[in-house]
Computed example of a mutant assay.
Amino acid sequence: MNGDDTSLHADTGVTSGLFVERSLNEIRFWARIMKEHSLFLRLGFRAEDTQLIQEANQFYRLFEQIEQTAHSFNNQTDPEQIRRFNSEVQQAATNIFIFKRKVLGLILTCKLPGANNFPLLVDHVSREANYFRKRLIELNEGKLQALPDAIIKENVFFLRIMADHAKFIGHLLDPSERKLVDVARNFSNDFDQLLFQARDLESMRPQSQTVPLLDQFLDQNRVSVASLRDFKKTARDLIEQCKIKSIIHPLLADHVFREADRFLEIIDMFDAHLTGGSSQPG
């Protein structure tokens, strides 16, 4: 996907009120995600990686400030002010994307031996930064994908995110948590298959973009995402209660739960549009 607005009714742009609402919704959600990425990356650096730690801390403070500013605005804020804010946030998202790719390069060239950030995790968080960056660009330009394109592209993006989450959970649980590791592995396999199906549907466009096919596509994905979301919630609660053994930070457990919950909201909103409803994600 990477950047197709999920609030569109059609391919005709947005009203100023919807523009403000969607911009604030995206920034409030993703600025918090970017802030938390900064923390997770910092926790994975070695003590001697002082420059990287300092950069991560700077990004944490930046996105914390962005998040606070976004909450100071409301749906009646002047659209031009929001447009300028979107541009500022888009630049911040671009900068953290560059930082994350730099970290990935250092890991893959073995320049951070002993650090604790998986390469796939760093790639994962950089994909989310790129998604956020492109979303803001498209909102400011008023360029929205047609609904069938947006449905497929958004699901391709988020299904891969969910597959990654399952893999991370499986690797960060203690190996002695054998049953939970198996559950995470099964979710990983399930979402890999859903992702392959989504990419097949994508490659068959535009012929594949019929209402029955897209409706079934959303329904099938919803079942698996809801199941994964519930598993993440259970894991989060168990981690917070110190009932399972892992090296998963409690905030990371909540972080991946929130992303699954957002994907479910997006699926439901798409389904409402597809079947003639008018639901908007909150």
Rank of each mutant, 00 (worst) to 15 (best):
G170H: 10
Q207N: 15
V225L: 01
V223N: 13
M204T: 05
R229H: 12
A226Y: 07
R222M: 04
I169Q: 10
S176I: 06
A184I: 08
L214C: 03
V183I: 11
F168W: 11
N221V: 01
D182L: 13
Q209Y: 02
K232E: 02
N189I: 09
D190K: 07
N221L: 06
Q197G: 08
L201A: 01
D164P: 12
D237I: 04
H165Q: 02
F231M: 06
E177V: 09
L194N: 10
H171I: 12
L238N: 05
L201G: 00
S208Y: 08
D174T: 02
I169N: 03
T210P: 15
D174R: 01
D182Q: 14
E202G: 06
V223M: 14
G170D: 05
E202W: 07
G170L: 01
L201D: 03
F217V: 01
D230I: 03
S176F: 01
E240D: 13
R178D: 09
S176W: 04
D237P: 02
R222C: 00
H171W: 11
G170E: 08
D230T: 02
S176L: 03
S224K: 10
P206F: 00
F217E: 00
Q207G: 10
L238C: 01
D192H: 09
F168R: 09
Q220V: 13
E177T: 06
V181G: 09
S176D: 08
S208T: 13
K233V: 03
Q209F: 02
P212C: 13
D215K: 14
Q216R: 12
T234H: 07
D215G: 15
N186Y: 12
L195I: 03
R178K: 04
D174N: 05
H171S: 07
R205D: 03
R205K: 01
Q207D: 15
K179G: 06
E240A: 09
T234F: 01
V183T: 11
A184V: 11
R236H: 02
E202A: 08
